[in-house]
Amino acid sequence: MSRLANPILGQYVPGTSVLHRLDPRSKLVFVFLFMMAVFLANNVLSYMLLVLVTATAVFLSEIPLPLIFRGLKPVLYLIGLTAFLHLWMTRGGDVLWQWGPVSIHENGIVQAGWTSLRFFILVLMGTMLTLTTSPIELTDGLERLLSPLTRLGVPAHELALMMSIALRFIPTLWEETEKIMKAQRARGADFESGGLYRRAKSYIPVLIPLFISAFRRAEELALAMEARGYRGGEGRTRIRELRYRMADGILLAVLLLLVGCLLWLRN
């Protein structure tokens, strides 16, 4: 399966847009606070403001819309499901439709609408972060943001390193899986037929070698890092220095303005 035909939710798309060039730290902080601010909205005007900000972000990212939405597809199903549940489960207000014990209340419709919109805004803004920030930038930013916490014993550097190694090895392990599956298939393994239980069981000959090779790789990686003098984050300099620019300041201003407006608009 090719990657373009089926983009993974929020997979990084290289580019040079304003959003791409923002400092990952300010993007992380913005998205984090934005997500909390979303819950301040409780009327039409405040939601409209959120939609406006999200739409601006999508526009500024210069990422083609179809690409964004193809990645979001699985989430859209989830949103549809929650809206559906809200429709039937939420009580209150006038009863609009009733059939035996099943009924749709006015509040159900309102809730279904607002919740889906809120959910959608949250996910979309989250993907805007990962779509425009490479995993390396993301982990770098996270490390720097967490670094004040090292004094409290939070292993910021180690956490960031773990994250970047995990991301780095996803394609490698995927390749390995394909290779092992081929080999076991040549030994007559069948991954396609049978019920759920049988099919799950048929993956044991793939999973065990995969785990073993993952451990082997981990050991080799640790050894290679030590051999090259790795001794944790202390005193480590980096080739890409993070630097706040003008745009980061503007982003911060936008964030403050947004929170202010939300507080003023909500009732």
């Binding site: 092992i180 081929k182 080999a183 076991q184 040549a186 000959p205 065990i208 073993i212």
Partner: peptide, 17 residues
Amino acid sequence: LRGKVGVVFQYPEHQLF
């Protein structure tokens, strides 16, 4: 073809389980 053609892939010991 399975069973008629046997394949020993590169580093076949990585498939032991």
